[in-house]
Design a protein around this nucleic acid. Structure first.
Lengths: 246, 246
DNA sequence: CGTTGCGTTGAGAGGCTTCAACCTAGGTGG
DNA sequence: CCACCTAGGTTGAAGCCTCTCAACGCAACG
């Protein structure tokens, strides 16, 4: 029995940006998130050095990939928002080389690799969209490296906020200029390669300039064009709405 | 006519680390690099915003992925050494979101996507190894993000040098403790997110500590364990010699 | 009502950057 | 064959961005 919801799930919304899907395609995607699991905030979905257990799909909440150093410092290397998946081929690996943790409580599904194999065979358009989203994940990682390597503190935050605005809009979780960001300043620090104190000061500078408002867990961008300009945000790497001619 | 060389190519050496290949498998890989092209140093193999032209395979020389900022600063996001390939599914994209340039003169091949499709069908073990090497590329990118986000200058360089030692040893291009590194200090700066001046000072500090010798284009690591310790180098993300039980 | 996590603020220190000059080596042209 | 030229390496000095340490306030929670 295929499940068809009236409002499409984040996964479907995202994948539809990467190709035109049939009704069947959409229901295939909806059913990937059938057997779910709910995980509290600030817990580990996957630990480093563990054996991979399947392909993660985030349905609700916000999670992140990370790595720890021996001295206790942490680098967050990706945000996983609803509709985002882990690596398709992660089963090929013996051990995880990084962990995945939750910012907020998350509803997730573990996709079995035979389910994916069946998609590859029977639903090529879905498989194509999934491969494309993997490319985007990698491109995002490259952009994050540029962010930490080339931009100063205030620009890093501006870029992160601009990227999340777009990504969350795609899956229907952001309004025109605001979204829920269940993340502490310390976590922003581990994301952007700076100290928590300096994140605080940079956030205040963004507020002082009238660019954002960030109280509680809601981020409102008061001047979207200005924030994007400050970040020098060029969204091409997200490859939104691209449908290759060939 | 399949070509079988006595000493395996870097590509074969690398892929053999990811699974046991048959004689046929090896010759399939060797033949991927059949129609080659030679490109001078300091030129572009691929430019940002260009349409992708195929899957790049580096046979000789050293290349890099990069992105530019409007102010002229550059972030290098990956090194491509012999045996490294570009993204398999890059053909799905409309436009490149980054460029690829050469450090030194390079011999490269452009793999057509139908050649890969044929591999996927007829040589599953090869396809598996290639997918695994893609996973490693992504893991390396994550490690680079940690490098720039968490480590201080001298550690960043130590980590980069340690990683390259291992990667070049795998493809038979490094001795136990040295290899050819055709890279200027300015390029190291764009790699590690620091200024060229500070790269210079950090290199001198590494020399002063008796850890490296870097004259001309040859890098010699005088104390490999010490350099790895300084970098806190944990090579698990390269997934060398892993062969998944299943 | 104490505890705890998180945001805020101050002060001092240090890593890194920028600007600038100088040097060396390798390549080019006269 | 040598003068010139250019790219890259080296060095000094000044300053700023960011870090660390530390204290304090506040709200949520048991």
């Amino acid at each position: 029995m295929t499940q068809i919801s009236l409002s499409p799930s984040p996964l479907v919304r995202k994948m539809e940006g990467f190709g035109s899907l049939s009704e069947v395609d959409r229901s295939v995607l909806e059913n990937l998130g059938t057997s779910t699991e709910t995980v509290p905030a600030h817990s580990d979905l996957v630990r480093e050095d563990e054996r991979p257990r399947g392909i993660l799909l985030v349905l609700e909440g916000m999670a992140f990939r990370y790595k720890m150093r021996a001295n206790g410092s942490r680098q967050i290397m990706a945000y996983l928002v609803p509709g985002d998946m882990g690596d398709l081929d992660v089963g090929l690996l013996d051990r995880m080389d990084h962990g995945i943790g939750t910012f907020s409580a998350c509803k997730v599904a573990w996709i079995r690799s035979d389910a994916l194999a069946s998609i590859r065979e029977n639903h090529p358009e879905v498989a194509r969209a999934i491969r494309m989203s993997t490319l985007v994940d990698e491109a995002t990682l490259r952009e994050w490296l540029l962010n930490v390597g080339c931009r100063v503190a205030i620009e890093r935050l501006a870029h992160l906020f601009s990227e999340l605005l777009l990504r969350l809009q795609v899956v229907g979780l952001a309004s025109e200029n605001s979204y829920t960001l269940p993340i502490s300043q310390g976590e922003l620090a581990d994301t952007t390669g700076m100290s928590a104190v300096h994140v605080n000061r940079s956030l205040m500078e963004l507020r002082r300039r009238g660019l954002i408002q960030f109280s509680g867990k809601t981020l409102s961008i008061l001047d979207v064009p200005a924030l994007k300009a400050l970040a020098e945000f060029k969204p091409n790497y997200l490859h939104l709405g691209e449908r290759r001619a060939a």
